[in-house]
Design a protein around this nucleic acid. Structure first.
Length: 836
RNA sequence: GCGAGAGUGGUGAAAUUGGUAGACACGCUGGAUUUAGGAUCCAGUGCCGUAAGGCAUGGGGGUUCAAAUCCCCCCUUUCGCACCA
């Protein structure tokens, strides 16, 4: 019945990947197979999102891996019959594009648009199933019009506001950075140490959502724990109390935040951050004024890295002023110290040297008293003269008046309650998270839709006048203030309120604003009346699977959740969270484990590999090398095994197809198959199960291994039933199709189908009664050590297995002259005989 | 320093979540075929040992009939946070 021996040499020539890839790519495009509908069935939709890309050149290995992971899942869902939305777009504003443009002396817009078109056509050649009809590009006015609209909605709700304060400034990029763009005190992009600068900026009030951003993480079971933990820590919620100390001279309140109100009687000094506003209220005099001033200057000049280095000894300077502890009316010294952070709490801390490590070191250095107010327990005590470090655990309060003896949680509650009743304190929750600084003094970004009028103040641009178009200026080099300030045609405007002369806001937005809502635009990308149609968005939301790098854990992924929650509050979306499941893929490094970069000269381009080996083989190699969440040390050797498999083993299956058009929905009955066929049928169903499981976990390496086993076991000499033969081949093609789409489509068509395999043809379900073989090998252990394996019927009970086992010569030799004292039997697995 | 994860053959990795460790590949060794091959096919391949057998999942202890998997200590490593009062 079958074609018999096939010369593999001839065969390889028969899979002309260049031709076949082109053929199907054109077909898929022509038939619009990836075009998502606007109104999927709610219970049958699958929104697969991969993070959109910076168009910084053509795509590299990392992109390639990211997108083929998503593509395999998207295609599996298509086969499975889901309505799939799998869009793509470009995060096209931002510093990298601008910097590259400056280097090459091309306008950022031209550079960006050119890169987009190159990258797009590469992605099309990779055969990624993106719905290009929904492409969005964040630097084009039809998109950023709505980014500006978002800004205005936030402004209307009081969630976008201006504030003067110290900001992170990158002297190299000459712009403000958000906290998440500062890594180790350096600019994340260029590595330049960041300095503090006092400037008026726009902020989004993300802190108003801090609690929901933390609490709702518990409703995201399909987000990785590490990301959730990172977000929780980043937001950094801590419960405590705020206590008002009194500045002795002026009687002014000096509130401080503490998580340890139970140590309040141990306060021996207060420390204030050099940048803190309160310092100006102290009316410092004489030499103290000078010293403090000098210290402030010094502290501000130090870089963030120096200031936060833990090895650095803590220092500070006495202000000559005192504050009163409202609990015991004790007078405590007021110090300025740069280990206190201006941006957290009130910028001042109550220092309890006996019970805080930092305060202890500081007190020792400056000879400030140390007062013990907590003992480790009722039976042991501390002596401040003998302490070599602070005691920071909980314990009973001492030297604390009426509170003596209370400890831990109860102590904290009682102390706080007392402060509350007496009007000098309250419960307080504090967050590390700060409001999101979004102003950037750069050209290549989304203009902030605000007009500054001398008469009317800050006026948002009316929504009808959007977009505020970014002008194409010649001089976009950053100089420390926004280049737009020097573009008269842009900066000069009329006030929408009084009609008088006014100025536009010269800054552009952080690009993370653009990427905070793009996933919604995909549901309705051409809408020019609204950012998106509510019902279209509602049809597709939430995102079922969001794939991207772990690098965005505390940046983009928090902003995007914040935006979504805001949009829910103003009635534009109806789910509490944007994405049900998050998956972080691993990085691609070179064979030595180093990042691929042009400067190192170790870049391997996926394009070169695809030209030489074809898209499908290149994809397969990437899938097979490691599970998707692990990093890959890429070596071209990875191609060898999978190439042989794909070209010499898998593709030739189609030559053995007998054109019987089997019914793929059926299961076979045992009586209709020969013994060998049934065995193969079981193998097929096991493969279906393994591949499906692997896809659920995005572990394509094991899916491929399972397919390799199936093909290895497939032996036509055993098969008499052509219908079964064809059934097996078609199922195998479907299982492989998401990973090797071109080859699979080719095989599918060769099998006589006139429509695409990706058009809801049905993902294979395994036959539950054909998952285990009739006869299996089970292990026989003596005292827990493997001594033999025996073949038994799959449902053999303990007695049957024992009989067979005891018949084994090997087993006998191990139990000879010994007594069996215990028998453990796990059906289908092991028999363990304990002997003595 | 704190938090989370990881450590399995020469290499990439599997392991039904406590039940035959190393699936599937790469590489290597031997053989076959071939004018030749980096092509293809067959066999072998964790380590020690001729064998019987013993030893093996970073190291050391423990729980269990049974541990890569659970518990304790240590080492290495990756990532995140890094004076958050």
């Amino acid at each position: 019945m079958l074609t018999g021996y096939v010369n593999m040499k001839i065969y390889l020539g028969h899979y002309n990947f260049k031709e076949i890839e082109k053929k199907w790519q054109e077909y898929w495009e022509k038939t619009k197979i990836y075009q998502a509908v606007d109104n999927p069935r709610k219970d049958n939709k699958f929104y697969l999102l991969v993070m959109f890309a910076y168009p910084s050149g053509d795509i590299h290995m990392g992109h390639f891996r990211n997108y083929i992971i998503g593509d395999a899942i998207a295609r599996q869902q298509m086969i499975a019959g889901k309505d799939v939305l799998h869009p793509f777009g470009w995060d096209a504003f931002g510093l990298p594009a601008e910097r590259a443009a400056i280097q090459r002396k091309i306008h950022p817009q031209e550079w960006t648009l050119k890169n987009i078109s190159v990258s797009r056509s590469t992605l099309q050649k990779v055969g990624i199933s993106f719905d290009w009809s929904r492409e969005v590009t964040s630097c084009l006015p039809d998109y950023y019009k709505w980014t500006q609209w978002m800004f205005i909605q936030l402004y209307k709700k009081g969630l976008a506001y201006r504030k003067r304060g110290y900001i992170n400034w990158c002297p190299e990029d000459k712009t403000v950075l958000a906290n998440e763009q500062v890594k180790d005190g350096k600019c994340e992009r260029c590595g330049t140490p960041v300095i503090k600068k006092n400037q008026e900026q726009w902020y989004f009030k993300i802190t108003a959502y801090a609690d929901r951003l933390i609490d709702d993480l518990d409703n995201l079971p399909e987000w990785p724990d590490n990301v959730k933990t990172m977000q929780k820590e980043w937001i950094g919620r801590s419960y405590g109390a705020e206590v008002d100390f009194i500045i002795e001279d002026t009687g002014e309140k000096l509130p401080v935040f503490t998580t340890r109100p139970d140590t309040i009687f141990g306060v021996t000094f207060m420390a204030i951050a050099p940048e803190a506003e309160i310092l100006n209220h102290l009316h410092l005099e004489g030499e103290f004024k000078e010293k403090v001033e000098r210290y402030k200057q010094k502290a501000m000049a130090r870089s963030e890295i120096e200031r936060t280095a833990l090895t650095e000894e803590k220092d500070g300077v006495f202000t000559g002023k005192y504050a009163i502890n409202p609990f015991n009316n004790e007078k405590v010294q007021l110090w300025v110290a740069d280990y206190v952070l201006a941006g957290y709490g009130t910028g001042a801390v109550m220092a309890v040297p006996a019970h805080d490590t930092r305060d202890f070191a500081f007190a020792k250095k400056y000879g400030i008293p140390i007062k013990v107010v907590i003992h480790p327990d009722e039976n042991s005590s501390l002596n401040s003269n003998e302490m070599s470090d602070a005691y920071t655990d909980y314990g009973p309060m001492v030297n604390s008046g009426q509170f003596n003896g209370l400890k831990g949680k109860e102590a904290i509650e009682k102390v706080t309650e007392y402060a509350h009743q007496n009007g000098f304190g309250r419960q307080k929750v504090n967050y590390k998270l700060k409001d999101w600084s979004i102003s950037r003094q750069r050209y290549w970004g989304c203009p902030i839709p605000i007009i500054h009028c001398d008469k009317c103040g800050v006026i948002p641009v009316p929504e009808n006048d959007l977009p505020v178009v970014l002008p194409k200026v010649e001089n976009y080099i950053p100089r420390g203030r926004s280049p737009l300030e020097d573009a008269p045609e842009f900066i000069n405007a009329t006030c929408p309120q009084c009609g008088g002369e006014a100025k536009r806001d010269p800054d552009t937005m952080d690009t993370f604003v653009c990427s905070s809502w793009y996933y919604l635009r995909y549901t309705d990308p051409k809408n020019d009346k609204a950012p998106f149609d509510k019902s279209k968005a509602s049809n597709w939301m939430p995102i079922d699977l969001y794939i991207g790098g772990i690098t965005h854990a505390t940046g983009h992924l928090i902003y995007f959740r914040f935006f979504h929650k805001f949009l829910k509050d103003i009635g534009w979306v109806d789910t509490p969270e944007p994405a049900l499941r998050l998956f972080n893929h691993g990085m691609v490094l070179d064979a030595k484990g180093e990042v691929m970069s042009k400067s190192k000269g170790n870049v391997i381009s996926p394009i070169t590999l695809m030209d030489e080996h074809g898209v499908d083989v290149t994809r397969l190699a990437m899938y097979f090398t490691a599970p998707s969440d692990k990093e890959v040390l890429w070596s071209n050797d990875s191609l060898t095994g999978v190439e042989k498999f794909a070209l010499n083993k898998f593709y030739p299956l189609i030559k053995k197809y007998c054109q019987t058009k089997p019914n793929l929905k059926q299961y076979f009955n045992r009586k209709d198959l020969t013994e060998a066929e049934w065995k193969l049928y079981v193998k097929l169903n096991q493969t279906i199960q393994k591949v499906s499981d692997s896809f659920d976990k995005l572990q394509f390496n094991t899916a491929i291994a399972a397919l390799m086993e199936l093909v290895r076991d497939y032996d036509t000499t055993d098969i008499k039933n052509d219908n079964f033969n064809d059934y097996l081949i078609l199922k195998a093609i479907k299982l492989a199709a998401p990973m090797i789409p071109h080859m699979a489509e080719e095989m599918w068509r060769k099998a006589g189908f006139t429509d695409s395999i990706f058009k809801k043809t049905g993902w294979p379900n395994y036959d539950p009664k054909a998952i285990v073989e009739d006869e299996i090998e089970i292990a026989v252990q003596i005292n827990g050590k493997l001594r033999d394996t025996i073949k038994v019927a799959v449902d053999a009970n303990q007695n049957e297995v024992e009989t067979i086992a005891l018949n084994s010569k090997r087993v006998q030799s191990f139990i000879a002259e010994k007594q069996i004292i215990k028998k453990i039997f796990v059906k289908g697995r092991i028999l363990n005989l304990v002997v003595k």
